[in-house]
Amino acid sequence: MIPPEFDYVAPTTLAEAVAALGEAGEDAKILAGGQSLIPVLRLRLAFPTTLVDLSRVPELRGVSEDADTLVIGAMTKHSDVVEDPLVQQHAPLLSEATATVADPAVRHRGTFGGALAHADPAGDLAAVALALDAELVAEGPGGRRTIPARDFFLDYLETSLSPDEILAAVRIPKLRGSWGVRYEKFNRVAQAWAIVGVAAAVRTEGGAIAEARIGLTNMGSTPVRPAAVEAALVGASDRAAVVAACAAVAEGLTPPSDLGAQADYRAHLARVLTARAVAHAAGMSS
């Protein structure tokens, strides 16, 4: 199928991009990698007046670091995130999860920032950003602001970015200490979206879990951070304890019932997969 007509601008600096977005008005859309947006346009599910293409803004690409934080440009492609040595070193959970996004050709175009700003709760990376306490850096006409991941995802396909703001970068605190990570993605065929995904980062001390961070994919209208389970996992030193602590992971959640699965099955999967992810991350795989 064929996209509807729209105007197109390709700014070359972030400042120009913010200005272009402002000029284009409220029915404009930002074009990042386009791997979700272009199919949506082809199916004529959206009718933007203007696309502001960020792919020619070099300052939005690439991975850098400061003392405690990894800074990933919003337009960094998935394939570059996967291969980036800084990400592998300081946020291996992100490398692992990104490698499961779609397929190689899509990962060559799709971007980290685009995936987060799209805010599909079935997307893999939002749960990772949440689990890693990422901060999202937004640039707008009023300047720059930093939004914690927990405040960023508001609802299905809805974020706290205002229409005139552009996601510029994602700041991820480096993991320090003996962390293990795991992204458990459950889908019916390799290419499909996750029915449920679990991102887990676990720090162990003396064979027991000292700290656990978990993000859940597709267990609600936003990615979910099950804080009570994270707390309950502290001190767990074997698989049985992990399984017991994870039993409550779906409590209070309202996962969707859709073509992919019914809510109760998602809740069950979340329990099983969280236990698996945590146990694996903690080196307690049976």
Partner: peptide, 27 residues
């Protein structure tokens, strides 16, 4: 894997390759 699903109103809800799961090589 595959199933064409209609809802009660007669809409094909597996209307694209995103929802109609044709297996790929790893499957």
């Amino acid at each position: 894997y595959e199933e064409a699903v209609y809802d009660a109103e007669g809409n094909l809800t597996t209307g694209s390759l995103v929802d109609y799961l044709v297996p790929a090589a790893p499957d």
